[in-house]
Design a protein around this nucleic acid. Structure first.
Lengths: 211, 211
DNA sequence: GTCTATAGCCTGATAGAC
DNA sequence: GTCTATCAGGCTATAGAC
């Protein structure tokens, strides 16, 4: 049985290597620039060999999409757990998410833009994204409970507003200064200041509204 | 000389037709899906004929980029001029711009995302974009002068903040509900509410801060 | 200005030997 | 599992006849 395990592990390693190479190609050539031929070239095998690991190019996109979503979710969760509950947790989670995104721009484009119209992520690959929304929503609910925000922030709409701050800063940063890390440049430093506007968008019922 | 004029006009019409077709292809197949062969097919000519009008595929991208920037700038300007000066003018201009963008999504992606790494717009094609920033900045300055916003809004940073609201709403709308017009759906209705946060981001010096 | 023809590449995917 | 060989098609771009 160790034979089988070893083979399975080796196979998994190859799959990961293929995805690493695919991500590198997308970074250099754009999301649409990914081709199995180029992957094969860099991996040092012939193109047909890749079909033992992925049935099609779209399957590679799907695996990349899923891997990106899982990585991003994990990063966000980790940052949220070590921060104060409620609003600080939301900000910390999204900041970590954006930092990850800036250093994985190709995956980010695949996940949050729609650069390949013929590619639709599978339900399985999309699942972490749904969970991410849930995690954020829970934190926003907590912020409402703690009196940091008004009740509107706990509705679906609150997540959308927050996502606009996040994706807006990120899109502008990626399109205009892709070589700078998150936190540098003209756009990403504005993100925390925009997040600080949330209490103005969803004013908490009691105090803290006026100076 | 009318001979020459007629020929020049006919040539210009063909160029416009090529660009219309190119935009349609990008809408269907994605920005990267544009190919001169498909343009030729739809125009009813052979691919080599297109090289009489554009020296390369990148030149077509550049012409599309320029045409999009000019159209968007004109739409924005028109809306700004008929609105009240200052902040209302900024909101009206960007709303018109976003409405245009939602019905020209392929051009918008070409202009505001960076989906084709090998394409860099020429200085000429990029010029309207610079002017657009200037127009917005002038309106923001006016808003400061009128006491609608604090002085920070008139700095470069003010335009960037506004652009994040705009591009954020737009990106989310295009990626998640591309078939809905601007103003419908989960994201674009949030845009005016985010714009209404500007006085909280750049508080005017005197009154209007407290309720 | 448009055409035919073609060079010279690229691609995704499959069949079947080893 | 990897290979060779190949299919069947795509593409940009150019040369040169008409």
């Amino acid at each position: 049985m160790t034979q089988v395990d070893r083979r399975a592990r080796r196979r998994q390693e190859t799959i990961e290597e293929i995805l690493d190479i695919a991500e590198a190609i997308m970074t250099e050539e754009g999301v649409n620039g990914l081709s199995l031929a180029e992957v094969a070239r860099r991996l040092g095998v012939q193109p047909p060999s890749l079909y033992k690991y992925f049935p099609s190019l779209m399957a590679v996109f799907d695996a990349l999409f899923k891997r990106g979503q899982l990585a991003n979710l994990a990063i966000m969760r980790g940052a949220m757990e070590t921060a104060e509950p409620g609003l600080p947790s939301v900000v910390a989670g999204l900041t970590a998410s954006c930092t990850w995104a800036m250093s994985h721009q190709a995956l980010t484009q695949l996940m949050w833009w729609r650069p390949v119209p013929s590619f639709e992520p599978s339900a399985e690959a999309f699942a972490p994204s749904i969970e991410m929304v849930e995690v954020q929503r829970a934190a926003l609910r907590e912020a409402v409970k703690l009196g940091q925000l008004g009740p509107g922030a706990a509705k679906e709409e609150g997540v959308y507003a927050v996502s606009i701050f996040c994706i807006g800063s990120l899109t502008q940063a990626m399109a205009n200064e892709p070589e700078l890390p998150w936190g540098k440049g003209r756009f990403s430093p504005l993100f925390p200041r925009l997040m600080a506007l949330l209490p103005a968008l969803y004013p908490p019922p009691k105090a803290n509204t006026s100076k």
